[in-house]
Amino acid sequence: MIVAFTSKGKGWGSMIDPRFGRTDYFLVYDESKDTLSAHDNRQIENEAHGAGPKTAQLLFKLEADVLITGNGPGGNAAAVLEKAGIKIFTGAQSFTVNEAYRAYQEEKLQEF
């Protein structure tokens, strides 16, 4: 499984970014290869409209199976994620990426 996190930084110790469409980074953890990679999403600041669908499309390109985030995506982004077959877990905004991953494994996060 490929698990993506909305995050404020580039490592396991970074805080989860509560926003979806305008998240600073995506951290992508490939469980089978045990690799973590960071994807900068900050250029989305320049977009006045449609940040949600645009970011959801990026997540699709990153081939994520699961998204772990804070507040959860808005309606338009959720429609893209649903079509892309990405499972969404919310409520991780007070966690680091590491803590959020553990909470997800322990099924403590809410499925969107």
Partner: peptide, 10 residues
């Protein structure tokens, strides 16, 4: 589309 109102997904 300047507004991301059209999105291609696969």
């Amino acid at each position: 589309c300047n507004f991301h109102a059209v999105i291609q997904l696969a």
